[in-house]
Amino acid sequence: MRVTFTVNGAPQEADDVWEGESLLYVLRERMGLPGSKNACEQGECGSCTVRLDGVPVCSCLVAAGQVQGREVVTVEGLAGEGGELSTVQQAFVDAGAVQCGFCTPGLLVAADELLERNPEPSDGDIREALSGNLCRCTGYEKILDAVRLAAARTEEAV
């Protein structure tokens, strides 16, 4: 089947999509957007997190056909048009929140949405918002640091 939707502001189309394909597969293998990651494909790790009509979801659990006509934002859509990193991306780099980096795209999408919703999250809020994103390398401490840093920088910038 053919599926057409908007990704990071640009219309995208995929043909010959098998009906069982996930949004994740279509993004990665058909649209050249492999930033969303394939760590578990069962909604238990968050590495494939994208925003579907603004809402963070596991793209591995969205059937490709369900996205017809809708808007998707992936990690590739977080940076500015000139390629400048978003606040949360820069904070992840600066805080040492990235090791192998496989969980990073999903965490960034989730953290970005958290800060949009709640610009001054408590540690408990950060932990809850990121509790669907597994990281195996960092022990999460530097990830917390990064989100705190991004919140502080956003606050300063206001």
Binding site: G35, N38, L78, V93, G96
Partner: peptide, 23 residues
């Protein structure tokens, strides 16, 4: 020094090429 990872920016933009991304 706590210099930053040279692959950090690629990893936060989604551009870093993992083995499952090959095509």
């Amino acid at each position: 020094e706590s210099t930053l990872r040279p692959d950090g920016i690629l990893k936060v933009t989604g551009e870093f090429a993992y083995s499952s991304d090959l095509w």
